[in-house]
Design a protein around this nucleic acid. Sequence first.
RNA 1: UGGGGCGUCGUCAAGCGGUAAGACACAGGAUUUUGGUUCCUGCAUUCGGAGGUUCGAAUCCUCCCGCCCCAG
Length: 359
Amino acid sequence: MAAQKKHKKVLVAMSGGVDSSVAALLLKKEGYDLAGATMCLGIAEDGAGEAKCCGADAVGDARRVCDAIGIPHYVLDFAAAMEEKVIGRFIAEYRRGRTPNPCVDCNACLKFGLLLDRSRAMGFDYLATGHYALLESDSRGIHMRKPADRGKDQTYFLYPIGRTALDAVLFPLGGLMKEEVRRIAAEAGLPVAGKAESQDICFVGRGNLSTFFERHGCDIHPGEIVNRSGRVLGRHRGIVYYTIGQRGGLGISHPTPLYVLEIDAAANRIVVGNKDELRSRGLTASALICLQDGWPLRAAAKIRYRKKEVPCRLEAKGDKLLVLFDEQQEAVTPGQSVVLYDGDTVVGGGIIEGAIGEH
RNA sequence: UGGGGCGUCGUCAAGCGGUAAGACACAGGAUUUUGGUUCCUGCAUUCGGAGGUUCGAAUCCUCCCGCCCCAG
């Protein structure tokens, strides 16, 4: 086995964080012919941005780790793609009154899109990342499964890899717990062992969305906040600052807490109501990506990260998929992903277009 | 300027002589590769103002200020 691996060339996507660093370390120990690559996304910008996960800092840290492990390190300039595929879409979606998930787009277009293509072009057999997910194969092919550390499960963001790319991807951390990863990093004396978890949208940077939208020349207009009856309850700062199911930030005092029910981009209005009005029977999804032979009749649907999946029925409808929950769910949000599971296995996913059977 | 009612945290609102509930909002924190949800914590030494009665008042009395309603 080890002898086989020696011949395999693997490129590890390195963000400069603990996870991808340990992923590299483990692969190196296993004997792969390894190299590290960091995507330069051109978002260091001025001092205002201060990107955490993909800035100059990241490149430096990744390089230090590669040096420590003793593997080559490449820096690939994906700034243009980042701007077009991820940031551009992020802004466009928000202006439509939807809530995009840039991490999904980044995985689809950059990490497992461009970067994977590039790695193949450079002669690598595999692309590895520090994501927490498992890949297992049986007679029917390769399946993506939830990782050992359920608390760090990142399969929600990984479904867009697509079925055909699965055999070219490695997730060395899938069987480990986060604490083990940190311990491994510390024991190996990696320079990034104590680094904090990444969070926030990497390209928005520190601080607020407002400065991000300003920098990108978006004209944001304040407007009315109304209830289902059309009564004006308050004003919003601009549609882009809200998402469905959101409670805070409305500034409206009311006998009960109010949640965002709808975002009407055309009317520049936000509709709010009580929590129970947030429920839907199902949703329609597009931009479907199936990791199996086809959509099963039943599955478990996860409609937002960190929300537990719920039993549902599936109905294919042309290039769309109907997901019908056994029990009504709150805050179905257009633009977010719905990911479908069969037990621990990821069946596939898509982008939510709208809710079905709203109140 | 006849009569009646009301003024407690940003908003709504308990309290009715015993030493300021609660809700919403807001702020901070926890959690987290999407600024959603959820959870935790904080948030009126003070009750429109000034006097008075009382051991003690937001609660009783007086006057003033400000709103609202009904009359003429």
